[in-house]
Design a binder for these strands. Sequence first.
DNA 1: CGTGTTATTGACCAACATCAAACTTAGTGG
DNA 2: CCACTAAGTTTGATGTTGGTCAATAACACG
Lengths: 261, 261
Amino acid sequence: MAAGPSPEHATLIRKLETIATISSDDKQALADLPLRVKVFAPDADLLREDQPATECCLIVEGFVCRYKVLGAGQRQILSLHLPGDIPDLMSLYFDTMDHSLAAFTRGRAAFIPHGAIRSVTDRFPNLAAAMWRDTLIDASIAREWLAGVGRRTAHERIAHLICEVFVRSRALGLADAQTFTLPITQAELGDATGLSTVHVNRVLQDLRRDELVTWRGQAIAVLDWERLCLAGDFDPAYLHLLDDFVSESPARGAVRSRLLD
Amino acid sequence: MAAGPSPEHATLIRKLETIATISSDDKQALADLPLRVKVFAPDADLLREDQPATECCLIVEGFVCRYKVLGAGQRQILSLHLPGDIPDLMSLYFDTMDHSLAAFTRGRAAFIPHGAIRSVTDRFPNLAAAMWRDTLIDASIAREWLAGVGRRTAHERIAHLICEVFVRSRALGLADAQTFTLPITQAELGDATGLSTVHVNRVLQDLRRDELVTWRGQAIAVLDWERLCLAGDFDPAYLHLLDDFVSESPARGAVRSRLLD
DNA sequence: CGTGTTATTGACCAACATCAAACTTAGTGG
DNA sequence: CCACTAAGTTTGATGTTGGTCAATAACACG
């Protein structure tokens, strides 16, 4: 007789299940979380730097990013977020955000009061652990991006980003065997990788010419996963997904053997 | 009659007090944490990527960094760590590390069993919160570095890094009003900022010529904090230090007013 | 002292940025 | 269904930041 979780709750549960084991009690607790759903438009700011928060923002549908605007006006995109993510979970412990949150697409967000989350983490240590782990993975992704922007070439950075979104989309069941959606412009891709729009464009042409990917509109087709991983120096270990959710990538073995020198 | 905490425990307590309010019960619990002290040598790897861990590593003395080695052998330093930091706290929730930990200097680390930390966080929610907050700040610093490496000039990146270490050192009581120690070589500074050694050298010469800093051996003197913050586009907000521990920087107001446009 | 590490310099080069214009595509309203 | 528009993509020409290579100078330390 019990109705299943709402689509919003289900999205959160599905995401958490990709990174931690969630019991049915846990699921019930999540399903009982109060939330306020809001539709957002493309380019809308869901959250602005320096703002205090009393709720967390669960992405239910759509594609979202964190970004920072630096002194001279340059923008850097700090992370990408898919349905199930709570990009501002840290607001539970911070007085003010140190970055903003923007939508690439139309979508829906569910706002959950801090108090409700605290209550759940207090009563369900396993969920607290899962959420803490989620924020740690988030940090791990930031470090991987940092390494890429610091030391990888433009080609590697872009290939790497495509690999990451592909693996994350697949884990959430949002992609089929070789196709997924990356609804961002080349300018935005530049802001995410620390490159200029023009250069992004040229690199994408190379990736297409080399028959690694196809990019029509917002649909990306991975033509050769193995070579794409190599081109992007991609190893999904940093995503810390549970084994069932990792699409095996060839780069992995390559990295392992490098470390044994 | 109770002996105070050991120097190792005191270091941890002092650090946590810069980011959260710690009760005396909390302190007692921390002081009871079992730990195994180990001296390390300069350039020693405290922890290697891909290794599983059963302990966390508290830096008690010395200067340490996280780093990653990428496919083509380039190294990127991901973060810097001062006494009181537990750079591998995430190993509590990860099976394997996705990066390594290396010492710049001689120093001491205290290894604390995962079980002991879990027991403390289970029994003292306030300490769990403080530690979670610590990992969130860690992530926030990674994002700030990401923004810098992605979008700031070489001069800005280096000035910014100097500002950061200065503020963090002061918060821990490791620096006086204008002097602190940054025991790293120019090559390492390059690995941290995504620059070449040669270019780091030239930028440092500029910073000295402009009379922003002095760098003799490992001692840095900040000659003009205000202009250094400006040069580094530095705003300490992302460090999320408690108010008492923030050395006020002029960039802060500047950033605020920029945001009001 | 000698030896290894770190810092500095100069010459040259490449990756990527900038600027500006043209082209394509996707909407929108008539 | 066709113009019209705005956003996004592509191209070419040119500039600059910062990389690479290689040599020398300055230290630090046993």
